[in-house]
Design a protein around this nucleic acid. Structure first.
Lengths: 142, 142, 142, 142
DNA sequence: GTGGTCTAGACCACA
DNA sequence: GTGGTCTAGACCACA
């Protein structure tokens, strides 16, 4: 479990955690039945107040991604994958939609947009290679 | 100038105005020398606190998109187009970048992403035809 | 807006508020477009910490019952009625279901249950008459 | 004795056990003089911390449903039936009462409530036939 | 004025 | 040990 939290920046900490957990489940990095670090543990790891972690866990419970095992901690629900994949899709689609709306309102053409999209896609794909251990050594110059 | 403001939702009102003005300039709907409605006028039109409009205008002035016309209101600067086009590009690119980052973190493949992107693109292009006054009367059945 | 909060008892305060708001909307006492007391106001009225109220409002926002009017406060959403009616129905059905399950597991017969149900129903109906100002003076002996 | 325990969900495990024992006694499935599995046995069967079982047994002893048989475990008291029937009645009545209170607060009419109640009753009665060993083989198509 | 976030710290029930 | 709730109080952006 690796979370990267930005304490400055406009997204609330608990939201960052919620989003990262959901994306990790969608990605398969986190799967059904797996336990999450305890509230206190994670608070210590991230140097964040435990109330903030508790709030994130609470929200993940409301969203039926986690379930409590009484007295033992929080687990990823067996049926969380479908839900998180769906959440990821709407999250991404919403982002794309908003960006497109701005682009069109600003007079960008479809072709300019496609170009921009592909450029960002290869940029991130390249970065992904560097980050992920899977194909290390494979990446071209940066 | 038609603005559409959402008083619910997560984007501050003043920021919605700033963005819409910049995009309108980038699009060519607003061009150099054109005047904007007075703070009072716009506040009345949008049923919004005039401080909020004032703040938006202030930010647009800081960003050198508008300039005050001594006691007669705000005008779009002659040199605003290039600046707004640039602003639009980074705005869109940032949106795309964030969406891509989420998508990749959530395990979406490049192909799934391209598909989603194209789907949203045609959706918005279609809507654009209906909305925009440019080719009114041209659109086929919906 | 009348809320009755029990600070002792096993239901969290913020949950009590959430439930009462939803039921009030379902009942029609609270309707779309109506504003709720500000967080601070309600905290003062109920003599409860404002964080607790904020948490309730937050949950009501997540459940799409309330929406924020930036800088002005929280309003009941126009489409909240249907949602709250549904929430009420599942809330009540769940309660009934659990009670029935216990009853059956404990060997109660259907007829005993019906009797108990009707008894409680008239009891509460009577109390309702007393509480509600509509038909005061109408109630029989208690 | 078959218990079904939910480790997620809002009811404490020890309380689930207490309730299920009482209901079993009220139902006649468990009767006076009958022995319960030892704390260890039951903890092993249910894959649950033995402290939790011990706590449930303790509470059942306090409520005079079980009594210790000097070093040989716990037995159902001869006089437990009446007590458990009463407990069952108040348990069910409380549940019904709470559900009714919510229903009325939410503006449900008495008739809607009766309909809902009857619907749940037949649902559970049907399920009961399938579940219970009493009339296995008797149920019609589902 | 409005709501939202975060912290520090207390206290609780539960396993 | 686990999570959950609540308080007091600070700080923030926004209208």
């Amino acid at each position: 479990m690796f979370f990267s939290i930005e304490t400055s920046g406009d997204i609330p900490i608990y939201e960052q955690i919620v989003r990262q957990v959901k994306l990790a489940v969608a990605d398969g990095v986190l799967s059904g039945g797996q336990m999450l670090p305890s509230v206190r543990q994670m608070a210590a790891d991230l140097a964040i107040n435990s109330n903030t972690i508790a709030r994130a866990y609470q929200e993940l419970q409301n969203d039926r991604v986690l379930e409590p095992l009484r007295g033992r901690g929080m687990v990823v629900r067996r049926d969380a994958l479908a839900r998180c994949t769906k959440a990821r899709n709407t999250l991404v689609a919403d982002g794309v939609r908003r960006a497109l709306a701005d682009a069109i309102a600003g007079g960008m053409t479809a072709d300019e947009l496609r170009e921009l999209f592909e450029a960002e896609l290869v940029k991130q794909a390249k970065q992904e290679k560097v980050t992920s251990p899977l194909r290390a050594g494979d990446e071209s110059c940066d």
